[in-house]
Design a protein around this nucleic acid. Structure first.
Lengths: 210, 210
DNA sequence: AGTTAACCTGAGTCGCGCTCGCGTTCTAGG
DNA sequence: CCTAGAACGCGAGCGCGACTCAGGTTAACT
């Protein structure tokens, strides 16, 4: 069900021990991202903390970028799962409640999921670099917006047109940027900025959705 | 008048030759950023293209990051100068025209200024890394929003409160993210996304300004 | 001309991402 | 049970990039 391994792993861990190792590497990657950021993260240190030899690390992950991407996809899955669950468990009367809820879940993830607030889903993750990386980043970005939109279309009755799709991409991008700012201003996310983020999304989307 | 050298240069170029060298290094830095991005950029190649020995490079710039920051500040100055000039030369009846104009100028810079569209003013520039870098990035970000706001307060009559200041920071952050997206989607900036950016800013700020 | 200080320079250091070939451990056929 | 072969595990080592520093060069003043 998870797409963590899709295109990001060199070899799928077949044995039990291998799977645990991949798990540990991703965990330590997340922890290290929080401690030292993407630039400060070294594959050697990830391997050392996960008690995995560096050679073995590169059996599973194509490169440093790939490791972080794998983590990003895993986090995205976790996020969408939470949103789905919470939406299903909540009575929603209009779409503004839904977007507020999505933002709250995102904030929750940033607060509690190690390594989560390091990502720009699709923006800075692979930000400057070769065209290949840019294409991938763009793709990731659309994936996030698309999956979120699919969720909201299914669970509440938001309209599904090309114009709305673009609006969703824009809203996700903008919200991500503002929340990133909120978490730079304050470790738990500046509450005022989080409130502004909700307002921004509501105001903007009200042009496109009823 | 320019603050390009503020805190980003190790030593101010006193002699004429030195000043030209710094100039050339910044120019080649910008060109290289467009070609290979931040990660792909190497100090050696900047020095080589500018015909400056690598040792001399490090006399003026503290490190690679510092070089890019210096360029960012210079670009910011150029941008604000253009906005000031255009605002002064245009009859503005309400603030929405002003924000549209600012966005148009920003797009113009991204299209024509080498290396300009690589920056997130304050977001990804120093995005992941040590806390020192994060603090600096945050500071940069506020600097941009603050200077823009000062401009608009002076030239048209936007209100100047703490709430409005925060709204400006949010708007700048969001607009930057959306425009970045627009330029990833298309080399000259996707017109639809640029239009959406203007709409986003207008809708959001109308809550805070009249 | 001599003395001193400021400046220039690129070979070299250190640490990173990543590889490659050898050792070891599983699997299958006799 | 033994053995041939494949699959996996491993870490010393390679290439390269950011950055330094000791020695040479130029300028400035007496």
């Amino acid at each position: 069900m998870t797409n963590t391994a899709t295109g990001t792993l060199r070899r799928k861990p077949a044995q039990r021990r291998s799977a645990e190792r991949v798990e540990r590497m991703l965990e330590e990657c997340a922890r290290l991202l929080d401690e030292v950021g993407y630039e400060g993260l070294t594959t050697k240190e990830v391997a050392r903390r996960a008690e995995v030899p560096i050679g073995t690390f590169y059996q599973f992950f194509p490169d440093k970028q790939g490791l972080v991407r794998a983590l990003a996809f895993r986090n995205l899955d976790a996020f969408l799962a939470r949103v789905t669950a919470t939406l299903a468990a909540t009575r929603i009367s209009d779409w503004t409640e839904a977007t507020d809820l999505v933002i709250d879940e995102f904030v929750w993830m940033k607060r509690s999921m190690p390594g989560f607030n390091v990502f720009d889903f699709g923006v800075a993750l692979a930000a400057p670099g070769t065209s290949r990386m840019l294409d991938e980043a763009l793709e990731d970005n659309l994936v996030v917006a698309d999956r979120l939109r699919g969720l909201l279309i299914g669970l509440i009755g938001v309209p599904a047109g090309d114009e709305q799709a673009r609006a969703f991409v824009v809203a996700v991008e903008a919200a991500d940027a503002v929340l990133k700012l909120a978490f730079r201003a304050c470790p738990d996310g500046d509450p005022d900025l989080i409130a502004e983020c909700k307002r921004l999304v509501r105001r903007y989307l009200s042009d496109h959705l009823g």
